[in-house]
């Protein structure tokens, strides 16, 4: 079983979000970067499947050199090797093209990633990759099991319920809870990760289709109006007459 897990390098969930250069780019200054939390569900599930059935887990990042600490972290958690496509991940279409190009060279049995990244929240790359490769994409999947060597069983969240999908390998799936419980690397994992292969490749010719022009932040809220717990019912009146939401 050859599994490809795509990860993105994103600001930590608690980061303050700021922009620089006339609000044209994200301000990385003082920001801690992490493996996209959704991608961690995919990574952990891939490692669990490898442990159960044998095979390899390759981690892929389309990004610049500053993503390498988190690529090493993925290796420390249990991936076998890694590929970094050395490019600024400008938009989803460009990233999907890079992933598809790597996938075409390597015949993976499954390509996993998170349901979306917590920075650009696009939720596009997985379906684009599936379409580019002409294989099914199951998005978002909350469960993933192998029935046999050529078939997987997934649960997909839909609005108001879930679907059970059985699909032939290869396929693309995106992960969300409760697919797996993310792991923390242990000391042995951290030591071995240093010597695991991390291959850096240059991007294939790709195109962007969505240009980020500028960023802004939402207006600050006006402050909280407190209501005495003794007169809690007053809240309902305010929500109807003042906030006009009831």
């Amino acid at each position: 079983m050859k599994i490809l897990v795509c990860i993105s390098n994103v600001p930590d969930t608690t980061s303050k979000i700021n922009f620089t250069g006339d609000n044209k780019s994200f301000d990385k200054n003082g920001v801690q970067f992490v493996i996209n939390p959704w991608d961690e569900y995919a990574l952990t599930r891939a490692i669990e499947l490898k442990e159960a059935k044998g095979g390899t887990v390759t981690v892929l990042n389309v990004g610049e050199a500053d993503a390498e600490p988190n690529i090493r972290k993925a290796l420390a958690i249990g991936a076998d090797d890694a590929i970094r496509v050395n490019a600024d991940p400008k938009d989803a279409f460009f990233v999907a093209q890079q992933i598809a190009a790597i996938a075409k060279q390597n015949n993976y049995d499954m390509i996993l990633m998170g349901k979306e990244s917590i920075d650009y929240n696009g939720s596009q790359v997985h379906n684009m990759v599936g379409e580019m490769l002409g294989i099914p994409s199951i998005v978002p999947a909350s469960k993933l099991d192998l029935i046999d060597d050529s078939t997987a069983r997934l649960e997909r969240e839909i609005e108001g319920g879930k679907e059970v999908v059985e699909v032939k390998l290869p396929f693309v799936a995106s992960a969300q809870q409760p697919m797996s419980e993310p792991r923390i690397p242990n000391m042995r994992g951290i030591m071995t990760a240093r010597t695991k292969p991390l291959q850096v490749v240059e991007p294939v010719a790709g195109e962007t289709k969505a240009d980020y022009v500028s960023f802004s932040k939402p207006e600050k809220k006006g402050g909280v109006k407190m209501i005495d717990a003794e007169n809690a019912g007053e809240l309902i009146t305010l929500l109807r007459n003042e906030a006009k939401v009831l």
């Binding site: 922009f19 969505a210 980020y212 802004s216």
Partner: peptide, 13 residues
């Protein structure tokens, strides 16, 4: 974008 912490203007080309 950024989980509701910001907005981005995007030109669809």
């Amino acid at each position: 974008v950024f989980s509701g912490k910001a907005f981005a203007e995007v030109n669809l080309t």
